[in-house]
Amino acid sequence: MKILNSTEFVIACVLVAAMVLIGLVNPAFWGFDNLFSLAKSNVVIGIMALGVLLVMISGGIDVSLPSFAVAALYIVVRAMVELNYDGVLLPFIAAALIGLVLGAFNALIIERFRMIPLIVTLGTASIVRGLLLGLMGASIVNINKMPKELIAFGKHDLVTVQAANGASYGLTAMVLVYLGLAVAMHLVLRYTMIGRSVYAYGTDAESARRAGFNTRRTIWFVYCTAGLLAGLAGMLHTSMIWQANPRDFQGLELDVIAAVVLGGASIFGGRGSVLGTLIGVFMLVMVKNSLILLKVDTTWQRVVVGMIIVTATAITARRDRRKLA
């Protein structure tokens, strides 16, 4: 059976097994509060992972998205506070545009100067974060100053469940935004020529050029879209936590990459799917969050994430080596 052999199926099986295991150790895992909070934690990292997925299919890697996200959210929120503006749609558009412009900066350097994406994005990440903190200061915009409509937007729930002790838990509606973007990304990757050009470019850049793809446009599309997604992710983050902190997302790029690799994308390019990435993100977030349920000290989190990256890459390295041979 084809489906049984697919990467997504294998990851999904691992995920289910892990869920069962965690549930056995601590049944609180299956509580609505835990599941809802898990879903919420998926949103921001998941949207960035969609961007990194796109970059990875094209054969690159991008560590700049979290700094782009934080720049977008902080600039927009600060501007809203200064201008006394309140609203939802316009700020989201502005943040997306900021992300897009920053992504275009990546594209420009990678496409024009033919430099390895890792090194370029390391550089742009530090430029953006440095300028943000240096020019705009490091102060946090807290809940009192946050635009009210933005907070209200972030508070939307899809369903609320009343627990036995009277507390109620909601499933944030932001999950819909995430899933909507995921479906859009899937459709673009599968049913548009620009989406297929990303796979073609990642498989063999030279052949893609010969086949008549406009490969420059492909690179611009990839990095601009990734930047745009980062901008949106940043804005969702700020409206869900009701504050804007320019120091957020430190080191998140590693988690995002880990999630995408876990989802079966190949760092050599040409392979990767939205479904796999969704599962990979869920798995990573779940393991990190469940360490508390499993009574593991939180200081171990990074060690566990590191282990996950190493294990996942060791397995995919075997797979890719087999394919190459």
């Binding site: 890697i61 890792l118 590693l254 990459i257 880990a258 690799v261 760092i267 050599f268 200081t299 171990w300 989190q301 990074r302 060690v303 566990v304 994430v305 590191g306 282990m307 996950i308 990256i309 190493v310 890459t313 060791a314 390295a317």
Partner: peptide
Amino acid sequence: IIPILATLGTGQIFAG
């Protein structure tokens, strides 16, 4: 394992 990913992972482990 490709060095970027291997050292990305071990970097987390060592820092952790």
